[in-house]
Simulated assay, not measured.
Amino acid sequence: MTRLRGADAETVRRALDADDPLPGTAGFAGFVNRGASRLAPDGFLVRDVLGRQPIFGAPDDWGFAPDGVAGDPTPVPAGHIREPDGTDRRVWSLPDPPAANDDVAAVETVRHAIDDALAGLDDDGLAVAFSGGVDSALVAAGTPNAPCYVVGFPDAHDVSAARGAAAAMGRELRVVSLDHADLERAVPEVVAATGRTNAMDVTIALPLYLVAERVAADGYDRLALGQGADELFGGYAKVVDPADDDRVAATTVRGATREMLGSLPDQLERDTLTLRAAGVDPVVPLLADGVVEAALPLPGHLLATADERKVALRRAAADRLPASVVDADKKAVQYGSLVSRELDRLARRAGFKRRMDRHVDRYIESLV
């Protein structure tokens, strides 16, 4: 059994000793003992500050749940260690640096951080989840030998956008075309992997599961995603004018963007469990520590404005991607793939009408 994913024990211990939340990894979780003996009884479970690796249970079983939430389903919170007595103790929080005052230097720092994160990837056995947006296109550009996959129903926005972006970038694209039978088959598998039955989580996880299933069948064991870029770089509409948007508590663009970062551990837990259940491990280079560190000081106008979101990220990508890809709009995967629309349609056909409370949730529950 793997004792620690994403880092070695000495790196974790140094990060604890130095109170360093971003020690140069791409996320980690697992069991670490306090002494030299691998069998020391006083070990603890640990999860990195952004929760990029999920872990569940207690130190005496120190197990991952790569095939679903098994045993104790309680995750270790991001930035915490779980002591032998089951107590969770926060050991890291994200830095809160002041806003950078040099736009050119700030964008250049982001550019170099992304280049470094991508340069460190081994593309052997790696595929890319490719939607045609700037996030996944940057990942694809940095992994030129990895095949690109898009998932969706035939008339989906993501399929069309990915075809256009792949053509502009000169990349081959493999399309995972969905139908209703795919959704009906995969819903119970996603629920088993994640332990979740709410429509939002399931409709996000379904396209990830189905594309990962195809990737694994084609012989790849890792799937690179542009995940985290929206949270880190101001990709959500609700961060544009947060003072007038009741979907966020913050009143500034920087504050709202940081609020979005707080949603990552729960999302990453869901998506990682989903992808592993389908037979691949996720790779999220845009959430590498160096990229996070470069993004945190970005001022509000380099995050989101009334005219543009992910401003710094797009500027950083300008000399690496075609202009049509840099400027492309991106839909959330459940909408861009049309999975949300079609699962709703299946629910209504099965008698779960929209006038019913939680009609899609109830349909999902009926399938499991």
Rank of each mutant, 00 (worst) to 15 (best):
I114E: 09
R174K: 05
A205N: 09
L225D: 01
L313N: 13
G71R: 00
V107N: 12
P242T: 04
A105I: 00
T11M: 14
Y335K: 02
A58M: 05
D8G: 05
V190C: 11
A106P: 13
A323W: 02
D60I: 02
D246C: 07
E184R: 15
D67M: 05
R52S: 09
A328I: 02
D135W: 10
V240I: 15
A40C: 10
D17M: 01
T11Y: 03
R345V: 09
G125H: 10
G120H: 11
G120R: 14
L173H: 01
G142P: 12
L268D: 05
L183C: 05
V187M: 09
E342R: 15
E231R: 02
L321A: 09
T251P: 08
P95L: 05
P59I: 03
F64S: 11
A306S: 12
D8I: 01
V139I: 10
P188I: 13
A166M: 12
G152F: 03
A167L: 14
T274M: 07
R3T: 14
P54H: 04
T143G: 07
D245N: 15
A78D: 13
R5M: 08
L232G: 10
A217Q: 14
E259F: 06
P207L: 05
E269K: 12
P95Y: 00
E83W: 13
T197C: 05
S136T: 14
A137C: 07
D327M: 10
V202H: 04
L121R: 05
V215D: 04
G170C: 04
Y236G: 08
W62H: 15
A7G: 10
D42G: 11
D61S: 03
A70Q: 13
A167Q: 15
V280A: 02
D289P: 14
A199P: 06
G63P: 04
P147H: 06
Y363D: 06
D61F: 01
Q267I: 14
E231W: 00
L183T: 01
P84I: 06
R276W: 07
R254P: 09
A193D: 00
V368S: 10
L16R: 07
R196I: 10
